[in-house]
Design a protein around this nucleic acid. Structure first.
Lengths: 208, 208
DNA sequence: GTCTATACACCGATAGAC
DNA sequence: GTCTATCGGTGTATAGAC
């Protein structure tokens, strides 16, 4: 399976090695960030974890923010994979689909607080994601917008409101009662409220 | 008007002076935080602004976080004053009252982004507000809860949902389009949606 | 190309002289 | 109470060994 055309090697072993080391650094950074907090990440800790001296990291990332940036892109890519995999199983019923999409996002945020903090909160002082790392985030939003449009949710206003509603619940849960479920229990109620607002058919109750 | 009982002075000039200097330091800190960002605040800058050397600040605050703490308490006290002053003018109509309360909070957050960031976002790494500084925040919540209970909004769930909804809109506005009004325009829509959820009487439309 | 060694500028915080 | 001096820590930069 190993093919070589003279002078044009199929594999660039050096680039592979470099990419593997970059991945190793990012993995170590996640582990430290989850343990000491996202803002508690230091280059010296990361270097120690991968068996380097701190300045050596600059051979792989041009700054600390570049490491955050790679983490940002990786986290959104992971979530894009989850959402892409779940898309074919979306319920036909609009109200049920709204709930699945909301729950997917909510549960990911709660289960991965560090990732959510980096992905959705502006908590690292100087950090602004690069266009490349932002791309998977845009893809997630586009995919969600497409899914919800198929449900009949047209217009930016409804989508913006939906995002703000789910995001508000996540933020309230994380900020006021991390680890609890006081706001998590409200998610279905909130989505029903939103579905009523859209004028979607009620599921069973609401005979009126 | 200056009364002195022997040995028990009415005024403690030293404490007054100290308190005045503390206020001066906090005012300087706000100005710098608004200019360089909340996380960009440094003790050296604050000291320079009030004509001191950095370590001298430790005569007035035991740490940098203590300065943040005083700012936190001051900001919530300011907002408590606003809410307290506005309370007597609250509309009798429940739906209208919901909107006034929401707008008051939303507008304050948008008009004072630095204050809102410190008050409602966990953006400073090690900072946790002290019970004393947290007190006015609790008072604001209690007051809002009382106002909304008079409207007929009983139960924690509705209140929590209301808070999350308004907070989500503020966060979305600040994070995605600071200075714009894409989410601000949704506030009334959102409150109407919430009022419908509560079963409040519609204002004029919704003839059905 | 990769890594070490060293250094810089800045930070919050502390000690101690005055 | 305010200063100077200084500490340990940070992100970052660069020279040079390998």
């Amino acid at each position: 399976m190993l093919l070589i055309m003279l002078g044009t090697p199929i594999r660039d072993r050096q680039a592979e090695r470099r990419e593997a080391t970059r991945a190793e650094i990012i993995a170590a950074a996640w582990a430290i960030a989850e343990h000491k907090g996202l803002a508690g990440l230091t280059l010296r800790d990361v270097a120690l974890a991968v068996g380097m001296q701190a300045p050596s990291l600059y051979s792989y990332f041009e700054s600390k923010n570049a490491i955050y940036d790679a983490m940002f892109g990786q986290a959104w890519t992971e979530y894009l994979d989850i959402v892409t995999a779940a898309e074919p199983t979306l319920p036909k019923d609009p109200r049920a689909a709204l709930k699945v999409v909301a729950h997917t996002f909510f549960d990911f945020a709660i289960a991965n607080t560090t990732r959510h903090q980096l992905m959705n909160e502006r908590t690292i002082p100087g950090f602004v994601p690069s266009p490349e790392s932002y791309a998977p985030a845009v893809a997630v939003v586009e995919l969600a917008r497409r899914d919800l449009a198929r449900i009949g949710m047209s217009g930016d206003a409804d989508f913006d409101l939906y995002i703000a509603l789910v995001g508000g619940l996540i933020n309230a849960q994380q900020a006021n009662e991390p680890g609890g479920d006081r706001w998590a229990r409200l998610l279905d109620v909130a989505i029903d409220m939103f579905a009523d607002h859209l004028g979607l058919a009620a599921p069973k109750k609401r005979a009126r």
